[in-house]
Design a protein around this nucleic acid. Structure first.
Lengths: 217, 217
DNA sequence: TCCGGTTATAAACGACTGTTTCAAACGTAG
DNA sequence: CTACGTTTGAAACAGTCGTTTATAACCGGA
């Protein structure tokens, strides 16, 4: 079937180019010519550039949320009524992320896309992701809440986003950082390597002492 | 003098629009019409859009690096040959960042710009910032090295970038996050508030235990 | 007052953007 | 084999983009 081939060739090419240059900087002509596909094919199969962008995201996020939900199911079955420790939760999330590239392209592309989704103001994208995948995140944060009962709700909210920032920022800007690190420390860094380094940092950050109360004025 | 007025009006308008939408998504026509300035004025005064972007950055980064260098001078004078504690270094950097909006527009814009500089691939910007302001960062990292002698160099490098990610990511995406936080916890969050919350997190993260050695293969 | 260099303006340039059109090719069910 | 819905193809559309050009306005010094 030629149709499916065209569709996946567009998606395969688009995700790489989007990850490399961003959405606005990647034209449909660049995508279609690199994918050796007619220009009109994008609008025919996806309707618009916006929809193409969302389709690129779905192809990563759908497998991820499926896996993540399943992993949380197993975790809750295993722990029953007991509280799942924070380290286990974080570990599970990390593993779910790492498993995505098994069926999709590369973890690097996945992370770059997530980074773009946050940094690019692109209102429609944030809304789309929030609506489509907000429930997994809600489920995860609830489990984190049970694992860190000593944290005030607001504090936990912010710390989770701090850590989200750490991971997405680092992994999505990895290429640039890797160049520097390689030059200065002669060490070639893999993504798995970085995740190994991230683990203790994230755990310590989540368990940091509470901040001093705001100064009275 | 009408010239300077035009120049600053372009810069004032451009920095806000860039921070809101990104560089590619902000056209010169949008900038000039909002600034009530002729379209050709940008190319006349700045030469090109690229140069305008760099000029916007300089107007924030120049005051920041000046202040930061001066603050580090004072710190080294005060501590003499003694090692400056990590908390003090981080505190000093935070204060230098916070002081910038005193002479420029808003901290929010500053942070958004930094976030864009990282996330947008825009090769020329990263190169420009690295060349122009790399020395302050090098000075700071050397002081951090002395403050954390137990950390392997590579580990410290990565952790510093982790924390950079945390701060820039959080503060540059603040508007979106603030909306959620306000809705869920009814708490209006200021930037100073966030920095207060960030402090213990960053310190704990930098002092986290070393990661497990990479698995043998 | 007239000059000369700096700044402002309007208009146009060519290149590129996402999208649409419509005819040609295709693949399959009858 | 024919007819029909799906998919491709080349071309054009209507805009927008950054940049350039040529002309006009400005303004302090001679």
């Amino acid at each position: 079937m030629a149709q499916t081939d065209t569709v996946t060739r567009i998606l395969d090419t688009a995700e790489v180019l989007f990850a490399e240059r961003g959405f606005a900087e990647t034209s449909l002509r660049t995508i279609t010519s690199k994918a050796r596909v007619n220009l009109a094919a994008v609008n025919y199969h996806f309707g618009s550039k916006k929809s193409l962008i969302q389709a690129v995201f779905s192809r990563y996020l759908d497998p991820f949320t499926t896996r993540f939900h399943r992993a949380l199911d197993e975790l809750q079955a295993r722990y029953g009524d007991e509280v799942i420790p924070l380290e286990v939760l974080l570990e599970t999330m990390a593993r779910s992320v790492l498993e995505v590239p098994a069926e999709r392209n590369s973890l690097k592309v996945f992370m770059r896309l997530l980074g773009l989704a946050y940094s690019q103001a692109q209102g429609h994208l944030r809304r789309y992701i929030q609506e489509e995948y907000g429930s997994v995140f809600a489920r995860f944060t609830e489990l984190v809440r049970q694992a860190t009962p000593e944290l005030p709700d607001a504090e936990r909210f912010w710390r989770l986003h701090f850590m989200l920032g750490t991971v997405i920022f680092t992994l999505s800007g990895l290429d640039a950082l890797r160049d520097i690190a390689e030059k200065d420390y002669g060490e070639h860094v893999t993504v798995r390597d970085l995740i190994r380094r991230l683990r203790p940092v994230v755990v310590s950050a989540m368990q940091a002492p509470l901040p001093a109360p705001p100064p009275r004025e």
